[in-house]
């Protein structure tokens, strides 16, 4: 009994150490991210004062605004003020929308989040089985079919696929709803809580609005999903081929384990470890916002927000958006690290 308690204490101590290491990594990365966004703002050939007062302001107004923005202070002090502001949730005001950047992001990020999440789910649910089938039948026709699907996913431009999808499933067949996140009729039914319309609708029991939002979401998510399917299936295939060659797979077969169980229970359990990182990468890629898809489907997401701000030199919005994307990267990375550790006893 004593020995089992010892190992338990040892294990929890190890987990504590791992958590400490992860947290310090997150802190350092976050600091680096803030430094980069801050420096970009200072390096940009856009005068932040002019952005506030306009280019015809008299000199005394200009100077006052400059003082208000704290631009007369030394750089390190400005950086300190910047960090302080970020942590109190003040990212400044967008010139373009005249809302605070935080408010803007609260509406555009959930739109991207639901798109990216459903896209990634589609990518996992189709890509992983496709990759497994390809690996198991390596070199034979199922593998060739998977290869073609992967190639299509990689090489078809999203904007073309999006347009064709709209043409077929929205205009001709009427299976899905068109551009936008929700039909005008339902717009005021759902009070934003999380900002993810489907989640909010479900929480408020507005099932009609829920299904309406879903029929708007499914097509753009599938378009993004096809890209994920391509990437995830190719990676799953190569991880699975690698695992299926391992000795422990032969050992499982020697025991008389069924082929199904050998593939899903033994080989895939090992392939999951690197696969988690791949899926996280593809998810992060989608979370940046996909400008083309968002534009075609009139989706008010993060990608479009940042691009529009950039084209209008709306620096607060650009930097705020960049900060959010960076923070999401750090978060998803941390999450995939944790899952990876849970999946692999050697990494615990």
């Amino acid at each position: 009994m004593a020995s089992s308690r010892d190992t338990w204490a040892g294990k929890s101590g190890r987990w504590g150490k791992i958590a400490g290491r992860e947290l310090s990594t997150v802190a350092i990365t976050m600091f680096g991210l803030l430094l980069v966004t801050f420096l970009i703002a200072r390096v940009m050939p856009i005068d932040p004062v002019l952005a506030v007062v306009g280019d015809r302001a008299p000199a005394d107004v200009y100077d006052k605004a400059r003082l208000d923005l704290g631009l007369d202070k030394p750089l390190w002090q400005q950086f300190g003020i910047y960090i302080g502001k970020v942590f109190t949730g003040d990212l400044g005001r967008s010139v373009l929308t005249s809302n605070t950047v935080v408010d803007d992001i609260k509406t555009v990020f959930p739109a991207t989040l639901e798109l990216a999440t459903l896209g990634t789910l589609i990518g996992i649910m189709l890509g992983v089985p496709l990759g497994i089938v390809a690996a198991v039948h390596q070199g034979r026709w199922p593998d060739q079919i998977a290869r073609v699907i992967g190639l299509i996913g990689y090489s078809i431009p999203v904007f073309w696929l999006g347009l064709m999808g709209l043409l077929l499933f929205y205009a001709k067949l009427g299976w899905v709803s068109g551009p936008g996140r929700i039909s005008v009729a339902y717009q005021d039914f759902v009070t934003p809580i999380t900002g993810v319309i489907m989640l909010d609708a479900a929480m408020q029991g507005e099932w009609d609005a829920f299904w309406d939002a879903f029929s708007h979401l499914i097509l753009p998510a599938s378009v993004l999903g096809l890209l994920s399917v391509a990437y995830i299936s190719r990676m799953t295939r190569s991880f699975m081929i690698n695992e299926l060659q391992q000795q422990y797979v032969i050992a499982a077969r020697v025991k008389g384990v069924s082929e199904w169980q050998v593939i899903w229970g033994h080989a895939l359990r090992n392939a999951v470890v690197p696969l988690v990182t791949v899926i996280a990468l593809s998810y992060m890629h989608l979370l940046e916002g996909s400008v083309l898809t968002e534009t075609i489907f009139a989706w008010p997401g993060l990608g479009r927000y940042i691009t529009n701000s950039l084209l209008n030199a709306d620096m607060n919005a650009v930097l705020g958006g960049t900060l959010v994307v960076g923070a999401v990267f750090i978060g998803v990375n941390l999450f995939s690290d944790i899952i990876g550790r849970l999946a692999d006893p050697r990494a615990r």
Binding site: Q247, A251, R253, V254, K255, R269, N270
Partner: peptide, 24 residues
């Protein structure tokens, strides 16, 4: 043939480092 494996004819392999599944 699969039902014979393990139950009637079995095999011990060379290196336990590789022939045991690392995640179980």
């Amino acid at each position: 043939r699969r039902k014979l494996r393990g139950r009637h004819i079995s095999m011990v392999m060379q290196d336990p480092k590789f022939s045991l599944n690392p995640v179980k």
